[in-house]
Design a protein around this nucleic acid. Structure first.
Lengths: 231, 231
DNA sequence: TGACTTAGTGTTATATTAACACTATATATC
DNA sequence: GATATATAGTGTTAATATAACACTAAGTCA
């Protein structure tokens, strides 16, 4: 079925920059898919696709993410809309970019899904990307860094139970700085957002670490207030 | 001439929230136009319109602004893209929203242009708006408030030469708070961004005020660094 | 010339941030 | 089971930033 309009129209897509975090050496990761079709066939690209007329932009982003990577129910926010004239060699395409944060548990789920070839790459070493996706990725990383310093979004990247050291590694990895351990713990705990669990995390020949979870109610309140979470 | 596509496509528009500032009682203002056509004929709305295929989103925003209000060369940044399904009663329309800041000199120019009926309204008292423009306006005002506290964008709303009192009134008006005069001046001057002029501003039966302009080079540097300008 | 009105200026208390080193407690090994 | 090892966990102090506060200066106007 054909659709006809008085004036020419741009195609509208969504693209998602999905961040994951590995407390080990790998650090901050981004999820890419390999394109199966031209243009940029076999190139790596951000997951995304066309917006349908009956769905909102957010819905489209979530749908495409699930279709292409198997990930769902993740933290997702609009980033910026990219609309230069020749972004896509075929025709005018305007893309609403999103960034998403996901917990390690979801990671493995995604990796085992083979609906499409999807792979995690460390942000410090990503391959050449299709279209203007490198630019979108850079914008997302910049936003994540900035966001991390004034909103408590970091928890979205950690498993439900985590240690303070894991949280600190996350901040250090994303921001690319070293943080003083004592100052970090003081600051983080002062927000009264973390709930200590009865469990401990045991790993290796050393003292086990206290596990925490964050209080989702206080978390939502802080996010809306634009509360400063600077480290 | 008709244009035909395989799948249905949303129409793409830009809408602009233009802020102006009046150092007097009026304070922060927003520029609205009265719609001449259905839907929402005779309602007030944000200036904006359809994006052409051969222009970027930014270009479209600037073009529409000039066409509808006569304003050009103003500070303009993308805000958010609004894409709920029934924003427009006619058909699916996705709108990339921008916010713009303009100096008082430009104001009067705009007011005298009668390309369309355009009028300034104090942000504390705006009329009912067409479409979801009230939501867009609120998002823009929230962003402006937040931006003002961490980037030196306030100067975009002032004339090229201004006094420290005018700058303080601007901050107070936008943020809705009272600021201590001495602390404000200390902080603002400490950024080494303001250049004192040889001129003074005389008005009324009292001591004249020193005029300043801001250093555009340092200004750009601070903007890029995401430098904190908190008051 | 005196009343009026806004411009302009410093100090101190308080809060926040930054710098810094040792003890605690588990596992692994001998 | 004694010891080595590796990470967890903890307080104090100096430096810096913020917040609170009141008077003098310099014009105009009556």
């Amino acid at each position: 079925m054909k659709h006809t309009y008085e004036y020419p129209r741009a195609a509208l897509t969504v693209d998602c920059v999905v961040f994951g975090f590995d407390s080990g050496a790998a650090g901050l990761q981004v999820l890419l898919i390999r394109r199966g079709l031209e243009p940029f066939k076999d190139h790596w690209a951000l997951p995304g696709g066309f917006v349908r007329l009956e769905e909102t932009l957010d819905t489209a982003a979530r749908r495409e993410l699930e279709e292409e990577t198997g990930l769902k129910d993740l933290f997702l926010e609009q980033l910026y809309t990219f609309g230069t004239v020749n972004r896509d060699p075929r025709e005018r395409v305007v893309s609403v970019a999103y960034y998403a944060l996901t917990k390690p548990v979801a990671h493995t789920t995604a990796a085992s899904t083979d609906a499409a070839e999807a792979r995690w790459f460390p942000v410090s070493d990503i391959p050449a990307l299709a279209f203007d996706h490198a630019e979108i990725f850079t914008a997302a990383l910049t936003l994540l860094r900035s966001k991390l310093t004034y909103q408590p979004v970091g928890f979205e990247l950690l498993p439900p139970k985590f240690t303070l050291t894991q949280l600190q590694r996350l901040y250090e990895s994303v921001l690319g700085t070293d943080i003083d351990k004592r100052n970090f713990r003081k600051k983080v705990l002062s927000h009264d957002l973390l709930i200590p669990l009865k469990e401990q995390h045991r790993e290796g020949p050393h003292r086990p670490a206290q596990l925490f979870r964050f209080d989702p109610v206080k978390y939502e309140r802080l996010k809306k207030k634009g509360f400063l979470f600077e480290i």
